[in-house]
């Protein structure tokens, strides 16, 4: 074979990879907090708000779900300075990923809210629960239970999708890999290592989501209304 695998030069720069992984966590962590916040506001706005608000949020959702994250990123990073808004690569990346996640999570959370029938809320009130208690026990937990697979799947996609930020040299794992590749010329080895780190992070998070699910929903696994519903949930996620 013309080429021998050699991981040594990459391993020598491993600290850079770990730093990159850490930055990926920071970047996607910030985006996730912001994105979910957008999603909550969006979902509540769409279900409870006036018609014009529903329309406006719907337009935002469709615009961001029907264009690539990479183009959103370019538009924010390269395009916004044109209207006088200059952002650092990292800030642009966080905003792009957050807006993207916001669009998807709006729809996921809305599906959860819509899955709770009005009669359930009325039943809760009739039992003498306070409004807050109704929201806590009758709306949020059961709704979350229904959308939990889609939501956690979306968070995984967001974590992985943040690798796109390397296109504008934001400091994260893929960019760190690209930098190492350009100094060591060990392309395949570098990106294999990067892949392993992403896989490790993803599996760790899946495990954490599973644990949280266990704590949140105690006894049973989330109910599965039907496989078909599951499938359309799966196809509701993306970047």
């Amino acid at each position: 074979m013309a080429y021998q695998m050699n991981f040594a030069p990459v391993m020598a720069l491993a600290p850079q990879l770990f730093e990159g992984a850490f930055n990926t966590l920071i970047l996607s962590g910030q985006s996730i907090v912001a994105g979910i916040a957008i999603g909550v506001v969006g979902a509540v706005g769409r279900t409870e708000g006036p018609r014009w608000l529903d329309r406006a949020i719907g337009a935002y959702v469709e615009l961001f779900r029907n264009t690539p994250l990479l183009v959103q990123l370019f538009l924010i990073f390269f395009g916004l300075p044109y209207i006088g808004l200059r952002l650092s690569a990292n800030a642009a990346a966080i905003i792009a990923v957050a807006l993207n996640l916001g669009a998807y999570s709006t729809e996921i959370l809305r599906a959860g809210l819509q899955a709770i029938p009005r009669t359930q809320i009325e039943a809760g009130l009739a039992l003498g629960m306070s409004r807050l208690q109704v929201v806590r026990y009758v709306v949020i937990v059961p709704a979350l239970r229904i959308i939990y697979p889609a939501l956690t799947g979306q968070l995984t996609l967001t974590l992985l999708g943040s690798s796109i930020a390397s296109a504008i040299s934001a400091t994260e794992l893929t960019a760190a890999g690209a930098r190492i590749e350009s100094t060591t010329f060990r392309s395949l080895e570098t990106f294999l290592c990067v892949a392993v780190i992403y896989i490790a992070m993803t599996f760790t998070f899946r495990f954490i989501y599973w644990l949280i699910g266990l704590l949140l929903f105690r006894r049973k696994a989330p109910p599965k209304p039907s496989l078909i519903a599951d499938i359309s949930e799966i196809s509701r996620v993306g970047v």
Binding site: T156, L160, S163, T174, G177, L188, F191, A195, Y198, I199
Partner: peptide, 15 residues
């Protein structure tokens, strides 16, 4: 499913 698409693109490109 646990690997970013971009990394898969790089891997098959260099692979």
């Amino acid at each position: 499913q646990a690997t970013p698409l971009l990394i898969i693109v790089f891997l098959s490109f260099y692979g």
